[in-house]
Simulated scan of single mutants.
Amino acid sequence: MDLQRLIDTFNFLDNWEDRYRLLIDMGRELPELPDEARTEGNRVDGCTSNVWLETTISDEHPPRMFFTADSDAFIVKGLVAILLKAYSGKTPQEILNTDIESLFDDLGLSQQLTANRRDGFVAMVKQVRNRAQAVQADETAGAPG
């Protein structure tokens, strides 16, 4: 499901109970994160529940960044799925240009989630953006000049 279809689906659902169910279902559809990826280096700081985010970078120029992630909380896992839809497979610049806050608002999540879950989502976004900035800086440093 692409992002616009996700927004349309969320807007179609009449109540938050159905939207939470959709979030949980999205989380259940995530591929299993291997145990070796559940390291401290992949752990997202700032989340109340455990969240691990693994990054793979392609050899293309500009490189594309692919993310796999998991959480031990059902709704957070759904938020992880949204994050992956927004960012995985994009270049660092595309990631940095993505207006995730607008997406969050379009889905109505900013009004419905607890402060802890919102903060956790912000922490996940920050980690993705920091990794994108680091990859972009490496690319710039390695560019012939």
Rank of each mutant, 00 (worst) to 15 (best):
N15C: 00
H61Q: 06
W52G: 00
R64I: 00
L109M: 13
S88P: 05
P31K: 12
T98F: 09
N15P: 00
P31F: 00
W52M: 08
L33N: 08
F12A: 11
K85V: 01
A37N: 13
A115I: 09
V51E: 08
D99E: 09
D59P: 01
G89A: 09
E54H: 15
I24E: 06
E54Q: 14
C47N: 12
K85H: 13
V44C: 06
T98M: 13
I57E: 09
S49P: 03
G108R: 08
L53I: 05
I95V: 12
D8E: 14
D8V: 04
E40I: 05
N116F: 10
L6R: 02
L6S: 01
D119T: 03
S71H: 07
W16G: 08
S110D: 10
D105E: 15
L84Q: 00
D25P: 01
P62K: 03
S88E: 02
E94S: 08
A69P: 02
N97Q: 13
P92C: 14
D25K: 15
T9A: 11
H61I: 15
D45R: 10
L109I: 09
G78S: 07
R117H: 11
L6H: 00
F12R: 12
G120L: 00
E54C: 02
G41E: 15
E29F: 00
L79T: 05
L13R: 05
T55M: 12
G27M: 02
I57Q: 13
K90F: 01
F104W: 08
A69C: 04
T39H: 06
I82P: 07
R21L: 09
S88N: 06
T114P: 02
N15F: 00
Y20S: 06
P92N: 08
P34G: 03
F74L: 15
L109E: 11
P31M: 01
E29W: 01
T98P: 05
A69S: 14
L23Q: 08
D70Y: 02
T91P: 04
Q112L: 04
V44S: 12
N42D: 09
F74I: 09
D119G: 15
G78K: 05
D8P: 06
M26F: 11
E94Q: 15
A69R: 02
D119Y: 13
E29I: 06
D14E: 12
T56E: 10
N116M: 04
V76S: 05
S88M: 12
L6M: 03
I75Q: 03
E36V: 13
D14K: 14
Q93D: 15
D14Q: 12
L84C: 08
T55W: 04
N15H: 09
P62I: 00
R43A: 12
T56H: 08
T114F: 06
I75C: 04
D72F: 09
D105G: 03
E60P: 04
N11M: 10
D25Y: 08
W52Y: 09
C47L: 03
A37D: 14
V80W: 03
L96G: 15
D45V: 09
F104M: 03
I57L: 05
R38P: 00
E17I: 04
W16P: 11
R118A: 01
L33P: 01
A73D: 13
L83T: 08
T48V: 14
F121V: 07
R5E: 15
F10W: 02
D105S: 10
C47H: 11
